[in-house]
Amino acid sequence: MKLKLHVWRQKDRQSTGRMVAYDAPNVNPEMSFLEMLDVVNEDLTGKGEDPIAFDHDCREGICGSCSMVINGVPHGPSKGTTVCQLHMRHFTDGQDVHIEPWRAKAFPVLQDLVVDRSAFDRIIQAGGFISVNSGSAQDANNLPVAKADADHSMDAAACIGCGACVAACKNSAAMLFAAAKISHLGLLPQGQPERRRRAINMVKQMDLEGFGNCSNQYECEAVCPKEISVGFIARMNRDYLSSSIFSKETGSTSKSED
């Protein structure tokens, strides 16, 4: 099959980018979307042009590296999949395919389709962990966890941090990501001692990074490759508001905010 690609090309962080059209004449419907781009890049390299830069790693849908908006939808038209798991059989011969990077002030474009997602790392650093004193490991069943809680926590922990939620949100909000990270620890006994501080600090960092605010449109849930529920955003709101209003916790001030 043949496709007409329209791809965002941007030389580096400082340059202004633009959409450039490419023909993809030899697309096999069995290819993954990234394999299709690999073939296009081989042609470009053969012609002496710069290949299209894009992030990818595991190519099995679990690393969260691949990140592109395809025809206006992060990770493309298939529900619950990353771009690497999207196959060309979901497209039709002769179709126009628009490929753009995640768009958010907090995710600056580094080159073409590659964005800098370190804002997510800094949100994690602000509280997405538990502090444990070193020593010999505890007996496995020392801390009983109800099966339902463990499952619920795992649903949140399924987040691969790809950033599709930010890309899909009209406000570039990172609420689904932050909510998943806050909830997966907040649902387990190990996460309780720092639960309030975690909610306050992670939300503070999220705001500091320049992500937008949630409008409860749930576009994030619709595109999340791990189908993480917006119910976790409500949980984050509960954790954040109850910690802010009904507890003495004001968040850590020891961290430098450079």
């Binding site: 206006g72 009209k170 605010n213 576009e219 619709a222």
Partner: peptide, 28 residues
Amino acid sequence: LNLANRAARPQAYAVKTYRRASFASRSM
């Protein structure tokens, strides 16, 4: 909040497809 939301996406998408957002939510 709306001004912050606008500032959070300086570069708009060339193509944007809504999957779930209702008409009401988009015109608040």
